[in-house]
Design a binder for these strands. Structure first.
Lengths: 226, 226
DNA sequence: TTCATAGTTAAGTATAGAATGAAGTATTCC
DNA sequence: GGAATACTTCATTCTATACTTAACTATGAA
């Protein structure tokens, strides 16, 4: 048991492979070349490392033409990477270090498969404020008014509740260190916003950008000034 | 940000340091010598590695005479190690591989600071069965009868609820892959059982043993045949 | 068909950093 | 006091494995 644990740790512990995992935390699949670029190494080298991660079942791969798309093979792997990201000490935000000095990734990013960062926290605050969700013993619950709200918003709560994965759970975000909504509801909200073009993913980064439409909608639905 | 993540990953990724973390997952503090023995290496080497883990704030240390006791410096670190342990593939349990063939650690162990393994899962099942706790959207809640039960059992719910840390949360155990109760209630139950000598910790292992008294009490309170 | 791109495989090298050996400081116990 | 134990520091050695160079297959486009 212990030796298997050590193997898993060593696998993620190599700098190049850690860089791969960091990139994949985004939740999207990346090609070998993209991963080589973001890890700043050669294609041969990344190929070797991806081989090891595949072998250990930490990643899975999908072939599309001459491209190969790599992603985490399951949630458990993402949890490891997220929990490691959570170890990173929060940077001191003094009046000198204005938000503008930080990369946008800090303010609007996805956390594996849900919305995290400042926007995720603000969104959660707004849902709490509007009593759409309520906090109870460090978990979130959807209120009865909340159920109506989600349905109006275009998200089928009953459907989501049927899914196996945790329905509505808090996720301690490593950049904000505040709970925000993860779970299937988090995923549904994220997808809804992507589909409706409130937000767009950026290439090669876990950051997302808010569109003009998104700005208006965030204000309207969540009273969030972007 | 990424480089800090990579450093953290590399820190845990070294085999000797991973072994240290594995041992500390127990939740207890260990001396440098104990860690050297369990990691099967020299005192000098363990000292070097402990220095690095301290430097990175993954561990903290408490001096007691000529001994130095090392432990995780916070919950976040334990979460990383637990989530990594969770990656270990569950061994196939066929009729040939009888439970007896597995080391006791699998059946009765602590999970950082609460009761895990078969006994932890059985305990949780019993609490659910007796409607002391109820499952709701993948989280646990204490019923009103449950509050009385805990008070009779000698655990002050109101006091526990005041504590900052998560009060009652499920923990996916890596050996059983079943939810069981973690959080402050988990800790209180564990401590109660240790104090009342239902169970005892074993040296140099995360396993715990059940005492004769414990056997009777587990049967009486939880209908668990040990 | 030819060229370009995406990715892999294999053999050889280089180096980071883990382990070792020797020598030191504290602390406890007799 | 002296011996034993717990732990650390530093200089040196060693080695696992990440990375490189080179040659390969496979897909797609011109």
């Amino acid at each position: 048991m212990e030796d298997q644990f050590i193997k898993a740790a060593a696998l993620i512990g190599d700098p190049t492979r850690a860089s791969i995992m960091w990139t994949l935390l985004d939740g999207r699949a990346f090609t070998a070349t993209e991963l080589a670029i973001s890890a700043n190494t050669s294609p041969q080298n990344i190929s070797m490392h991806l081989g090891k991660l595949l072998e250990a079942n930490l990643l899975c791969v999908e072939k599309q033409g001459r491209h190969k798309y790599y992603r985490f093979s399951n949630k458990e792997v993402a949890y490891v990477v997220e929990s490691m990201a959570n170890l990173i000490p929060k940077p001191e935000i003094s009046s000198k270090n204005k938000p503008e000095n930080y990369p946008p990734v800090k303010y609007c990013r996805t956390c594996y498969d849900h919305l995290a960062g400042k926007i995720g926290v603000a969104l959660t605050d707004s849902l709490l404020e509007q009593k759409i969700i309520i906090e109870k013993n460090n978990t979130f619950e959807i209120s009865s008014e909340g159920k109506k709200w989600f349905s109006d918003f275009g998200i089928n709560i009953e459907e989501a509740q049927k899914q196996k994965r945790i329905f509505l759970k808090p996720c301690l975000d490593w950049s904000e260190r505040r709970n925000h909504i993860a779970g299937s509801i988090g995923t549904l909200l994220l997808n809804k916003m992507l589909n409706e073009d409130w937000i767009r993913r950026t290439a090669n980064s876990r950051a997302i950008v808010i569109t003009g439409k998104g700005e208006k909608e965030f204000l309207k639905y969540f009273k969030i000034v972007v």
